[in-house]
């Protein structure tokens, strides 16, 4: 249990009977929640953590095989929840963490009271004719290629040492600290796990109520995806935030706090029963 706390740099703050776990998305770490966490801390017990391979998590705990798909990250999340709260929690997940939370809730429903997902997507790549994810497969491969090109900026990346220990380029330690995503190989693999994922078939078996918070002009998640989630999750409510872009918790934390409080206040079960 102590291992999980250290592995995922789990921190607890705030006061309240109700625990909210804030899970960051791809390309960032727990710090992204800072403005939101400040606003919620007086009323809730908050748990923040870094996804394995991100931020101040234990990079050594990242496992090429376990973390090759979102299911491995979901297992991590279940362990974080078990280690950080004895009662069911509300999980607030940004972007891919919303999806990871849905997978985790299937593995361990008893840990969840509710999921609030901000800008999640069950599949980023279009699947014509019926599914519009917003991207062509080529776009995603292009993104991965661009990430690959950025690894060139890492001193010693091509050196034999780095090649032999490509999962842990110690040489680049200093440079690494200046990056939000800590390790280029991990970050690239996380990108693959995220942007090539397709969990649409699992949505109908998500056993907890889900609130989707979305924004206008989210270049990562088009409105069609939000509608798809609303149609396929058993208990789902979608709410548009008064904010724009894929990172509303950065650009407009107030709107996100309002969205979270509203999602918590309303009785989800009775809403879902209407469907």
């Amino acid at each position: 249990m102590q291992d999980v706390i250290r592995r995922n740099h789990v921190q607890t703050l705030g006061e309240g009977d109700h625990t909210l776990v804030l899970a960051h998305g791809f390309g960032c770490d727990h710090q992204i929640w800072q403005p939101v966490a400040e606003a919620l801390a007086p009323d809730f017990r908050l748990v923040l953590f870094d996804i394995t391979g991100c931020g101040q998590s234990d990079l050594g705990a990242w496992d090429r095989s376990r973390h090759s798909s979102l299911h491995g990250y979901a297992e991590d999340l279940v362990e974080v929840l078990a280690a950080s709260s004895s009662d069911p929690v509300t999980l607030v997940g940004h972007s891919v963490s919303g999806t990871i939370a849905m997978l985790a809730s299937r593995k361990a429903p008893h840990h969840f009271r509710q999921i609030i997902a901000i800008g999640p997507s069950p599949r980023y790549i279009n699947d014509p004719p019926d599914y519009h994810g917003g991207f062509e497969e080529r776009d995603i491969l292009d993104l991965l290629d661009m990430m690959e090109h950025n690894y060139f900026e890492w001193a010693g990346y091509l050196s034999p040492l780095a090649m032999a220990n490509s999962h842990r380029p110690e040489l680049a330690d200093k440079l690494r600290q200046s990056f939000a995503a800590a390790d280029p190989v991990i970050s690239r693999k996380f990108a693959e796990a995220t942007f090539l994922s397709d969990v649409r078939h699992l949505l109908p078996s998500v056993p907890v109520p889900v609130d989707i918070l979305y924004t206008e002009q989210d270049v990562i998640v088009p409105p069609e995806v939000v509608a798809y989630l609303g149609d396929h999750l058993p208990a789902c409510r979608t709410t548009r935030l008064g904010a724009t872009g894929h990172y509303p918790h950065m650009s407009n934390p107030g709107a996100v706090v309002t969205g979270i409080r509203a999602a918590l206040r309303t009785d989800h079960a009775s809403e879902a029963a209407k469907d």
Binding site: D139, I140, A180, V219
Partner: peptide
């Protein structure tokens, strides 16, 4: 930006 570059901008450059 291409769609891929947009994603990269959002998930890498902007967080930096």
């Amino acid at each position: 930006l291409s769609p891929a570059a947009r994603m990269f901008y959002l998930t890498s450059l902007l967080p930096l």
